[in-house]
Amino acid sequence: MSAGTAGHVARSTVRPNSETIRRTPMRTFLRTDDGVTIDSVYEPGSAVYDASRSPSGDPVFVVAHGFTGDVDKPHVRRVAEALAPYGAVVTFSFRGHGASGGRSTVGDREVLDLAAAVAWAREQGHARVVTVGFSMGGSVVLRHAALYGSGRSEGSPGDSGGSERERREQRAQARTDAVVSVSAPARWYYRGTAPMRKLHWLVTRPEGRLVGRYGLRTRIQNGGWDPVPLSPVEAVPHIAPTPLLIVHGDRDGYFPVDHPRMLADAAAGHAELWLEPGMGHAEHAATDDLLARIGRWGGSQDS
């Protein structure tokens, strides 16, 4: 996995003279393996660190937002702020969202966007990466962990030539050490709730895509998946031994509770499942207390 030259441009050559520092936030555009530019932000977290100490022992949370979100949306910023006491945070806009390039494939090629963000997080010196995804992003973190982890061997969507050793090194740089999937679907093409029927109209109809582009700042790819990507429930068995947390609200208006239960069952005892009483869907419904618990869970997972 290559994040292009953007990560090198963002690095500072200034050496602090003080005994303690706050690592500097950075914003840049990453380049995915299929050539899409991804608007990305690295924030060092809220703690003050010893200037002589490497960040390698500190976790970094890579946040994968839901459909129609982006790095500047208030609900994405709130998630980043809530996780900051527990480690550094990388946020980014998926393809087709905000200032990122390309068009949204609604969870398919977005795995490459997440892989670029994870690789960039490791470039900042962090040995432990925790991916945290919401709704569409929740499905992406599951598929990413399966495709770039140790449980699946046929390669990642970004493999594009080179030796087998080079491909292994790319996947290692882009892999995650722990996964949190919030409000994710278990299966594709679900239309069992009114919000999901509206979302399918938005994605599949020309007038819906116009609403997405001009009303929601989301540019959506025309045409269906070919081939259909690995579904979240098919991906989950390949995530082990990477720690996995599945979080879902019992009042989720998009995906009822059979979705997280299917995901947990597919994990065959490997995953933790938190069914949150009274919680609705994704970032907007995640309370500060829940985000803090996610931060503590992610920070406690050993690499």
Score class of each variant (00 low, 15 high):
274 W>Y: 08
295 G>F: 05
170 Q>D: 14
206 P>D: 13
292 A>R: 12
167 R>G: 12
284 H>Q: 12
294 I>G: 03
239 I>R: 12
217 R>E: 04
210 L>R: 13
239 I>A: 11
165 R>V: 11
282 A>F: 00
280 G>H: 01
212 G>E: 05
271 A>G: 08
192 G>M: 10
247 V>D: 10
292 A>E: 13
258 D>A: 05
169 E>H: 11
270 H>C: 06
242 T>R: 07
269 G>M: 12
225 W>L: 12
221 Q>C: 08
206 P>L: 09
230 L>F: 01
201 W>R: 14
270 H>I: 09
285 A>Q: 02
277 P>C: 14
264 A>T: 06
286 A>S: 15
283 E>A: 15
199 L>F: 12
237 P>N: 10
202 L>M: 14
265 D>F: 05
204 T>W: 07
210 L>A: 12
164 E>F: 08
263 L>Y: 05
209 R>K: 11
212 G>M: 05
219 R>W: 04
295 G>R: 00
172 A>S: 14
275 L>F: 00
208 G>E: 02
238 H>S: 15
228 V>T: 15
291 L>C: 08
291 L>H: 01
280 G>M: 04
193 T>M: 00
238 H>Q: 15
241 P>K: 13
211 V>M: 08
256 P>A: 03
169 E>K: 11
230 L>N: 02
175 R>F: 00
234 E>N: 07
275 L>M: 14
299 G>K: 04
243 P>E: 10
270 H>P: 05
229 P>I: 07
171 R>F: 04
168 R>I: 01
278 G>F: 06
298 G>W: 02
271 A>R: 04
225 W>C: 02
